Amino acid sequence: MTTPRALRLDPSDNVVIAIDEIAAGAAPAGGVSARERVPKGHKMAAVGVEAGAPIRKFGQIIGFASRPIAAGEWVHEHNCAVKEFARDYHFGEDTRRENIVP
């Protein structure tokens, strides 16, 4: 069995994205074991998330735990809810132009 790949998009994220399908019991390199099947492209909790706590992807809040979510659990609409919260729109203020190709 090969190790499934997963990606943490920002150090503050509490989910990882499954690059490959993650079978129940499998663990991406350096990650927690999946408690259930996580489909390719979906989110898996990298740490436990308390009910009502924000779910972070890309370093941004994408939803809130509608119930406690255990590390390794698939994060989707059955345990993630959307609600109003204060937003900080200053995240792009420090951007700068990069000269990639002269």
Rank of each mutant, 00 (worst) to 15 (best):
M1F: 09
M1I: 07
T2V: 14
T2F: 12
R5W: 03
L7E: 06
L7G: 05
L7S: 09
L9E: 05
P11R: 13
D13K: 01
D13T: 01
V15E: 03
V16D: 10
E21M: 11
E21K: 13
P28H: 10
P28Q: 10
G31F: 01
A34C: 07
P39Q: 09
K40I: 11
G41R: 05
K43L: 01
M44G: 02
A45L: 00
A46Q: 03
V47N: 07
G48V: 04
G48W: 05
V49H: 01
E50H: 07
I55Q: 06
R56M: 13
Q60F: 13
Q60P: 09
Q60N: 12
Q60E: 15
Q60W: 10
A65S: 04
S66E: 05
S66T: 04
R67D: 07
R67E: 09
R67V: 06
P68H: 08
A71T: 00
G72E: 00
V75P: 01
H76T: 07
H78A: 06
H78F: 06
C80L: 12
K83F: 15
F85T: 10
A86P: 11
R87P: 09
H90G: 14
H90K: 14
H90E: 12
F91H: 14
F91C: 12
E93N: 15
E93K: 12
R97W: 15
E98R: 12
E98W: 15
V101N: 13
V101L: 14
P102I: 14
